[in-house]
Design a protein around this nucleic acid. Sequence first.
DNA 1: ATGTCACAGTAACTGTGA
Length: 264
Amino acid sequence: MSQNLKIASWNINSVRARLDIVTRFLTEEAPDILCLQETKVMNDAFPGGIFRQMGYNHQVLHGQPMHHGVAIVSKIPIREDDRLDWQANGEARHVGVRLDNGVRLENVYVPAGGEVPDHTVNPKFGQKLAFVERMIEWSSKLDKPTILTGDFNIAPLECDVWSHKQLIDVVSHTEVECELLARLQASHNWVDIGRHFHPAPTRLYTWWSYRARDWAASDRGRRLDHMWISPELLDNAVSHRVAEPCRNWARPSDHAPLVTEFRF
DNA sequence: ATGTCACAGTAACTGTGA
C-alpha cells in the first residue's frame, strides 16, 4: 500500500505577518507537511491555532524573539528528533523530525552571512562558513534516509543566479560558499531534487529581492532554497517545483515555496 | 544599487537583520 506525501518548504519572513498568504498556500496546495524558515516568533506566540484549524495538528517549533526561527507543521505525525545549533550561538536555525515511515526531515535556515564576503572584516560571513562546516560533519554521519530542506542562503550554480558575473563577489554566490555547499552535498551524496527534476541550466529561482521596482520584470532571482534527499529516496520522489506565483501575492515573502511530492 | 521589508524598543522614530 503506497502513501503519497507532499512536503513544502517556505522561508516565510515572519509567519505572523504572512498569515493570509500561508493559509492561502495551504488551502491551494494542501501539502502534508510544511517546513517554515524565518518564522520570527517565539514558540508561545506562534499562531498554532490557525494551522490546527487547517488540519496541521502536529507542530514542532523552534523559535526565538525577533529573528530567524524555524517550524514544521504537519497533517501526519512527526516526532521531534533534534534541534541542532551549528553556529554554537543559540540561534534557532534548525529542527529535525522523524516520520512514522522512518524518514528524517531536517529543516534548516542557514545564516545569510552579512554583506562583505570576508570573514576577517565580517564575522557573520565566518559564522555562515562555520555553520556549513558543522553541517558537513553532521551530514557525513547520517545513517537514515533523510530529507534536508530549507533556506540554504547559497545559490550554487551559475544558472542559479540572474548574473553569475555580477554576483560572483556577492554573499550567497561566492566561490568559497559554492565550494562549501558542494562539499556538504558530497558528504552524504545528497540528491539536489530541484536539479534532478529541472536540470541546469533551467531557471529555478526561489528568491527575489524586495528592493527591485518590479521583481518579476527585472527577474533578478537567486536559487537560495533547496530540497535535498538521501540517494535511497530518489525512487520515492515524484515531482518538485517552485511555487513562484506566491511571490506575487499581496504582502509576499521574498522567497517562494518549494513543493515536492513523494510516494512511499 | 541605499532600494524594501519586519521586528523591537521607545513613543514616530531608530537600529538590526535580511
